Simulated assay, not measured.
Amino acid sequence: MNVLAVGAHPDDLEILAAGSLALYARDGHRVTMCVLTKGDLGSDTHTRAETAAIRRAEAEESAAVIGADFFCLDQPDGFLFDGPDVRTRLVDVMRSAKPDVVITHHPDDYHPDHRAASRIVLNCRQLGLCGLVETANEPTDTIPGVLYMDTLTGIGFQPELWVDITETIDTKRAMLRKHASQNEWLKRLHGTDYVDYVDRQGTLRGLQIETAYAEGFQAAKAYPQPRDPGRLLPPSL
């Protein structure tokens, strides 16, 4: 399959879906990781331009861990809105990736950029077919299924689908460690460590399916959607 994961910020995909993305890559599927914003507010020691450059480099290094293609649409951190420019640019990424499935944020996650990203993905998935929407890449001939990632801390989210990521938890940790600048900033700001956080949430979701670590997903309630959305995920319980 072709898999496109769309996150609002550098590190969102790693926190919420890197174990599953690593499984896709391990099993020979093509993975593309797309970040909508520059993440340029994620520092208390650098300028916004410096922060954006650092975080892009870290995101590229993280994607390289699993051999994923990487795109950043360079929208401003904290001010992600649906509009013609971001739609056109994401449609072009979708045409490049030709996804069978798009993985993105849940529409009710805590951060406004996460919620915006979720809406933008759903609004763009059919535009890839439309030849009158002009982009560098040719129109696709299919509409991908959409799966929502877990929310941070799982608030307001009950998984419908689970992926056992026990075999790729170390890869997920390695990808997160590439985001060193953000992890250090979050430690100072909230006392939160990436790896500890994902271990705890992964353990919670793993408990629900009697495995060591898992990631949870929901299928978007949108037309058209595959009859069996679970087949779009790596082998799971």
Rank of each mutant, 00 (worst) to 15 (best):
D74G: 02
T140V: 14
V101T: 10
L189D: 01
H114N: 12
I165C: 06
N2C: 00
G78W: 04
A64M: 11
D196N: 04
L207V: 05
G67R: 06
Q201D: 04
R177L: 14
M33Q: 13
L129N: 05
G230L: 12
G230D: 07
A8S: 14
C124P: 04
V31P: 06
Q182E: 02
E61I: 05
M94T: 09
H190L: 15
A219P: 11
P226Y: 02
T166C: 14
R231G: 09
T45W: 01
Q158I: 12
G145Q: 03
V93E: 02
V146K: 10
A63K: 10
E184F: 07
T192R: 13
A116G: 06
F70K: 01
Y24G: 03
M33V: 14
R115S: 01
K178E: 08
G67I: 04
K178A: 12
I15E: 00
T211D: 07
L204H: 07
R173F: 13
L4C: 07
T47N: 08
G7I: 10
T168G: 13
L129F: 08
T192H: 03
D12I: 13
C130Y: 11
E58Y: 04
H111I: 08
I155P: 07
T153M: 15
L161W: 09
A219N: 07
W185D: 04
D85H: 13
L233W: 05
T171F: 10
T135I: 09
A59C: 08
V102F: 02
P99L: 07
T171A: 13
D150E: 15
T211S: 14
D109W: 01
N183K: 03
R95E: 02
I54K: 12
R125S: 02
R177G: 06
V198T: 01
G28Y: 03
D27N: 14
V31G: 10
P234K: 11
E160W: 07
L36A: 04
F157Y: 11
Q182A: 02
V3E: 01
V91W: 04
F81H: 14
T153N: 14
D74P: 01
K38M: 13
G206C: 11
M1N: 06
L233K: 10
L237H: 08
T45S: 11
N2Y: 00
T171D: 10
G19K: 08
E167W: 05
V163L: 14
V93Q: 05
